[in-house]
Every structure is written in structure tokens, then in C-alpha cells.
């Protein structure tokens, strides 16, 4: 998919990042921002399940693989901006923060949240992925062929 042509690309990006980030990281970076925005809770944090699907043969018909735990919440800022959060796992605080971040990122506070929370979270995810990829690459087999006998 061409990210440039997707009008929701940046919102998808921060929502996805908040969904996948570790709850402890979210709490830690949030605290360092020293923000106390006013908001009302539209939907209290709720723990539920999502049925994860796969495809037969990776390309065929969909089938149900099993569920994953997900927590969701929605908030509204005093100016009326609404934010939604869906996060993996069962942390209600994480879901509430995700909803709040979604709302704040649509306001003037976006730069502060981006710099104080989203950038360090993104860096942590990138570093983790890069480390695993580097370890995987170290286990890549380099074949060589042994020639037997003489021509």
C-alpha cells in the first residue's frame, strides 16, 4: 500500500504504535512528559478478545486461528476532539493512554506527544526488531560445496 495516498496513514501509525508498545514503556514515557490534559471518558477501558484470522496456505480462504486479548477505551477532550485506543493485552491504563494520545495527536499538543512519547516508543520498537533481525542474520546458513574426486 502506498502510505502517501492513505489519508489516515499518520493516525494509523500512532494508533498501531500505541497498540503494540509495552505497557510499562507507555507509562514511563507518559510520566516524563509531565502532561495532565483534561478529558472525559467516553468508553471506559474494556478488556475483550479479538479473533485472529489466518489464510489456508497463507493465500487462500480465511480461517480462525485463535483469539488475542485486547483492551479498548475512548476519550473526549474539552474542545470536542475524540480519541480511540485499542491495545494488545489487558492494561486498562495503557488503553486509556492510547485513546488520550490519539486525541492529543489531533490537537496542538501533537508535537509534544510525538517528541516525548511516540518517538521514544518507535525507537524502542525499531531497536528491538533490529536486534532480533541481526541475531537471525547471524544464523543464516552459508552453503559451500565440497568437490569430491578428480575430473
Amino acid at each position: 500500500m502506498n502510505m502517501m495516498s492513505d489519508p489516515y496513514a499518520s493516525r494509523k501509525s500512532w494508533l498501531g504504535l500505541m497498540a503494540k508498545a509495552a505497557s510499562a514503556d507507555v507509562a514511563r514515557y507518559w510520566a516524563t512528559m509531565d502532561m495532565a490534559p483534561e478529558y472525559t471518558v467516553l468508553r471506559s477501558p474494556e478488556i475483550g478478545g479479538v479473533m485472529v484470522r489466518g489464510r489456508a496456505g497463507a493465500i487462500g480462504a480465511a480461517f480462525n486461528l485463535g483469539e488475542m486479548s485486547v483492551t479498548r477505551a475512548s476519550v473526549k477532550l474539552p474542545d470536542g476532539t475524540v480519541g480511540h485506543g485499542y491495545v494488545q493485552g489487558r492494561s486498562k491504563d495503557h488503553a486509556l493512554k492510547a485513546a488520550l494520545v490519539d486525541a492529543l495527536m489531533q490537537t496542538d499538543a501533537a508535537d509534544t506527544v510525538e517528541a516525548g512519547l511516540l518517538t521514544p516508543l518507535r525507537d524502542a520498537v525499531t531497536a528491538h526488531k533490529s536486534e532480533r533481525a541481526a541475531k537471525a542474520a547471524a544464523t543464516k546458513v552459508e552453503f559451500f560445496t565440497i568437490v569430491r574426486g578428480e575430473d
Binding site: V50, M51, R53, A62
Partner: peptide
């Protein structure tokens, strides 16, 4: 159940 995912 919140719903079903898109196939991974």
C-alpha cells in the same frame, strides 16, 4: 468479542 482481525 470485539471482532475478528483481517487475515494476518
Amino acid at each position: 468479542r470485539f471482532g475478528g482481525s483481517n487475515p494476518i
